[in-house]
Amino acid sequence: MMGIRVKKDDQVVVIAGKDKGTKGRVLRVIREEDRVIVEGVNRVKRHTKPTPKNPSGGIIEKEAAIHISNVMLVDAKTDKPTRVRFAEKDGKKVRVAVKSGAAID
């Protein structure tokens, strides 16, 4: 099984689509569909009925999922998008930024 390159709370940049160039934090990873939900990216409007939690109902704006191939991890060292590879460090599998060589985990 292939290791997951993007995890929850990672800082990513969108590399394709209407929000190209936008940086955001990963809120959720949906592994079965190879999708991620990124804070402030791919915002959609949903018309909702009144509920006990939201008594007024109305139109709410929330983030929709985008394909994982459309985001790249931001390298903490250079603050630029980078690919991710895996390396073994102290017997553990860790994610490594290809651009700087810095360990992510």
Rank of each mutant, 00 (worst) to 15 (best):
G3K: 13
I4N: 09
I4A: 06
R5S: 12
V6Q: 05
K7C: 09
K7E: 06
K7D: 07
D9G: 01
D9M: 08
D10E: 06
D10A: 06
D10H: 11
D10I: 04
Q11C: 09
Q11A: 10
V12G: 00
V12T: 02
V13K: 00
V14Q: 02
I15C: 11
A16F: 11
G17Q: 01
G17C: 00
G17P: 01
K18Q: 04
K18R: 11
K18T: 05
K20C: 07
K20G: 11
G21Y: 06
G21W: 12
T22E: 08
K23C: 11
K23P: 03
G24E: 09
V26H: 00
L27D: 00
R28Q: 14
V29L: 12
I30T: 15
R31S: 15
R31W: 12
E32D: 12
V36Y: 02
I37G: 02
I37V: 12
V38W: 01
V38K: 00
E39P: 05
E39I: 04
G40K: 15
G40I: 13
V41F: 06
V41C: 05
N42A: 15
N42T: 14
R43L: 08
R43P: 01
K45E: 13
K49F: 04
K49R: 05
K49L: 03
P50D: 14
P50V: 07
T51D: 05
P52K: 06
K53D: 10
K53S: 08
K53Y: 14
K53Q: 13
K53P: 03
N54W: 04
P55V: 06
P55W: 10
G57C: 07
G57R: 08
G57H: 02
I59L: 13
I60Q: 06
E61G: 11
E61T: 14
K62Q: 15
K62E: 10
E63K: 03
A64Q: 14
H67D: 08
H67M: 01
I68D: 04
S69L: 15
S69H: 15
N70S: 15
M72T: 15
L73C: 06
V74L: 00
V74N: 01
K77E: 04
T78F: 03
D79E: 08
K80P: 00
P81A: 11
T82M: 10
T82R: 03
R83P: 13
R83W: 14
R83L: 14
V84Y: 03
F86C: 09
F86L: 10
F86K: 07
A87V: 09
A87Y: 11
K89Y: 13
K93P: 05
K93I: 09
K93E: 13
V94A: 05
V94C: 06
V94L: 06
K99D: 12
K99L: 09
S100V: 07
S100E: 07
S100R: 07
S100T: 09
S100M: 12
G101Y: 12
G101V: 15
G101W: 10
A102F: 05
A102I: 03
A102R: 07
A103L: 11
A103T: 12
A103G: 12
I104V: 13
D105K: 06
